[in-house]
Design a protein around this nucleic acid. Structure first.
Lengths: 142, 142
DNA sequence: GTGAGGTACCTCACCGCTAAGGCAATTGCG
DNA sequence: CGCAATTGCCTTAGCGGTGAGGTACCTCAC
């Protein structure tokens, strides 16, 4: 199956290319992922670790470590949940928000560049096909 | 760009699913990758670490470690190159060949299952689109 | 109210990969 | 030929992830 092989190769190439953009802003893919997910969330841009875990498809241990790193850099802040004593609320700090707002446009430009070889029809087609594949494999939303 | 996000999610799901198949044969993705690459190569199924590195898109250090693990399990054998004193030739042992010959059909079945939701036209289309994307990004062959 | 089970997050040992660098052999320019 | 640059592989430190397991808290039927 040439499809899966190409999928994997492409995914690696995309990771490498987007990684360069992240580095240019002092980030790595994991940190960008968390900050961008927080930024995309509805105001006031707060999520729990469990929500971040679902969004990023990594384990809870990975989320803890990502947040440790981001918190040490002052980019996010953890505070106890008011409504659930087990839970934690993660918020972007001003610095975190400034950084992700600076990095996001670059990332979008990089992404667009990676797809520059495709026509609009091809993009629509591949987006739809990937979507139906994801659905068939039980990936809830997207 | 929904395309890249879906691409990444799909790649992770595919990795998880194929990983289960590998585990069922006592392998992981890295080991399977090496054994399958050797098996696919022209008879007598021998490659150098440099060739394996190019095929797998990992660094030379990763290839060394993969080969260390496989050699310790008796699945591949390293021998000095006759023509180049710096180089090494990696060959499947009988055990390695038997194992990959047992695992490959399962992997092919798993791969087919992952694409079961697509029609033949969709598969052809996505294969062609991924190919043109890879070419546009400078991925030589495939 | 209480105990069982589930949920949320964290901790830790381990794993494979990268990146940087080292050694030895080969290539090829002058 | 001689020496610098290149090539091929290995080594190692460090990183981020997984998976298993721990603690604290919540829920709910009884």
């Amino acid at each position: 199956m040439a499809v899966l092989g190409r999928l994997k190769r492409l995914s690696r190439l995309v990771d490498a290319e987007t990684g360069r953009t992240f580095n240019a802003h002092g980030l790595d893919a994991a940190s960008f992922d968390v900050l961008a997910t927080l930024r995309r969330s509805d105001a006031p841009h707060r999520l729990t670790p469990a929500e971040l875990m679902r969004a990023s498809m990594v384990t809870s241990g990975a989320v803890t470590q990502r947040l440790d790193r981001l918190e040490a850099r002052g980019l996010v802040r953890r505070s106890p949940s008011a409504s659930d004593g087990r839970s934690v609320v993660v918020a972007l700090t001003d610095a975190g928000r400034a950084l992700i707002d600076e990095a996001l446009p670059d990332h979008i430009a990089t992404s667009a560049g990676l797809l520059a070889a495709l026509t609009q029809e091809e993009r629509d087609m591949i987006a739809a096909t990937l979507r139906s594949l994801l659905e068939s494999l039980g990936d809830g939303k997207d």
